[in-house]
Amino acid sequence: MLVAHDVPGGAAWSVRVRAGRELRCTALGPDANLSLLLLRADDPLDRLNVPDTLKAQMSACVRAPMVLMSDRGIGLATVTGSSLDWHDALCGHSTDVHVAPFGLTSYQDVRNERRVSARAGLLSELRKHGRDRADLHGSVNLFSKVALDDSGGLARVPGWSAEGDWVTLRSEVELLVLMSTSIHPLATTWAPPPVRVEISEAPADESARLFRDESARALEQAARAVV
């Protein structure tokens, strides 16, 4: 284990991660949400591209063993495993509009118990790295499921994740990983649990390479992202 960090519920965090690391994210309470953005550390204009990730692997959600792909066709990270078979990739992330029904609170009034949206948290982390609104791409929402019906309708599944649910990502290139544990934008209560993030050397994993040709090619491109 290289680093272990518990991100409190409703907080945001960012970390630079070398290629070949495993990020193990574990929900420390029920109904967790982790809104996740990925940027290449050496080239932050190359960002997680959710549409390209979904269409290349013919999926409307994120699940193992999909590869998370960038704007420029690089496999950024592999979802090497998860106790859940659906992570939302269609609903963006919460904004102040979604937190307001539970009462937007100020630091002056409640100090660090204030309620911060995922958008505000992710932007705050992006700005620490000289990034801003222009760099805010679509995120994925780990631990959340928004079910689709066959006419394209969406409905969040309450209680989709339980305490102890987990997902592991393998970094395929050096990454800037940005995350918020604020609520999913379609959540109906304000009760975001913390999420534990443990970073270690990644074990060898062939699951994505064997999953689809598209996933394998994204890993090939990652290996030659910088020659």
Binding site: P51, D52, L54, K55, E214, R217
Partner: peptide, 20 residues
């Protein structure tokens, strides 16, 4: 009657991933 906004745009790089 119906249009897509999930599939994104094609790029040379995503074509390589999808088609070789």
């Amino acid at each position: 009657g119906r249009h897509d906004t999930i599939g994104g745009a094609c790029s040379q790089e995503s074509n390589v991933l999808r088609y070789g």
